[in-house]
């Protein structure tokens, strides 16, 4: 798949999550993100990013809901917090899928020359998550080997310090390596550029169609995008929008070989 097709998919899925707090649409979107991750994830530690971002999402949802309990607790406010927390969680899961299916530096190679610098910064930022995930797993193991058990917060320094220090060292080595290998020395050529083939067309167009349907619903104020929680009402669901969300799962049906 062309990396551009994944950017389009992620942008559309992100927009859909952003436009609604309706849990029914969001649950379908979460399923779509999972199935796309499961069918296109890369080898190695990067494939763990979906799970990590999902956990991060659950934590965000929990925190968002817990905040409500600081004020007046009512069914309405708790539900609203749950809906908004869930939206945030799904958004993070979509990002996790994007991380697990694309190589950030692959996107860098495909970026046009004039966007090279911002693309480099984004690639570095995107690669941080999988790198940190891999580093954390190794350090957690080292803690076990030293017999560190017990409360999480007491173990935090022995986890955070090596992860951050190794991360810093790795980032420096990467920067050196890129420079030593001529990065940014002038015009460049492309090795076997990835074709934007039928598979990429299918992924990009179905994702766009789904996003456009939600754009329409936002403009028309229809489809139950933001269910009322004050008063508390059962969310309205539009079958058109359900189909639109489901379109984001289409990449799962497209094999990576379709483009070559």
């Amino acid at each position: 798949m062309h990396p551009g097709a994944w950017i389009v998919w992620a942008a559309c899925a992100g927009w859909v999550a952003f436009s609604t707090t309706n849990p029914f649409y969001l649950v379908v979107l979460l399923g779509a993100a999972w199935i796309v991750h499961a069918s296109h994830r890369r080898e190695g530690p990067a494939s763990r990013s979906f799970r990590v971002f999902l956990l991060f999402g659950l934590w965000a949802m929990g925190t968002r809901t817990a905040l409500v309990f600081l004020g007046t607790v009512e069914a309405s406010s708790v539900t609203l917090a749950l809906f908004e927390g869930f939206r945030l969680g799904v958004l993070l899961a979509v990002f996790g899928t994007f991380n697990s299916v694309t190589d950030p530096f692959g996107i860098l190679r495909f970026a046009p020359r004039r966007f090279h610098e911002p693309a480099l910064a984004s690639a570095l930022a995107l690669s941080l998550a999988p790198r940190t995930i891999a580093a954390t797993a190794k350090v957690r193991e080292a803690q076990r080997l030293r017999g560190f058990r017990g409360r999480r917060w007491r173990m935090l320094p022995s986890l955070a310090v090596p992860v951050l220090e190794n991360g810093m060292e790795a980032a420096l080595t990467l920067a050196e390596s890129m420079d030593a290998r001529g990065h940014g020395s002038g015009p460049r050529t492309r090795y076997r550029p990835q074709a934007w083939g039928p598979g990429s067309w299918v992924v990009a167009s179905t994702a766009s169609l789904g996003a456009v349907a939600f754009l329409g619903a936002v403009i028309e104020h229809s489809g139950g995008l933001s269910p009322s929680t004050f008063p508390l009402e059962w969310p309205e669901v539009s079958s058109v929008l359900l189909i639109a969300v489901a379109l984001l799962a289409v990449p799962a049906l497209v094999s990576d070989g379709n483009d070559s």
Binding site: R42, G44, A46, D103, F105, G106, R109, E169, A170, T173, L174, E176, S177, M178, R181, H183, Y191, R192
Partner: peptide, 14 residues
């Protein structure tokens, strides 16, 4: 390990 830029072996070589 820390010096690899790209993900696929072939791309890294290029």
């Amino acid at each position: 390990d820390a010096s690899f830029v790209l993900d696929r072996v072939e791309d890294e070589l290029a």
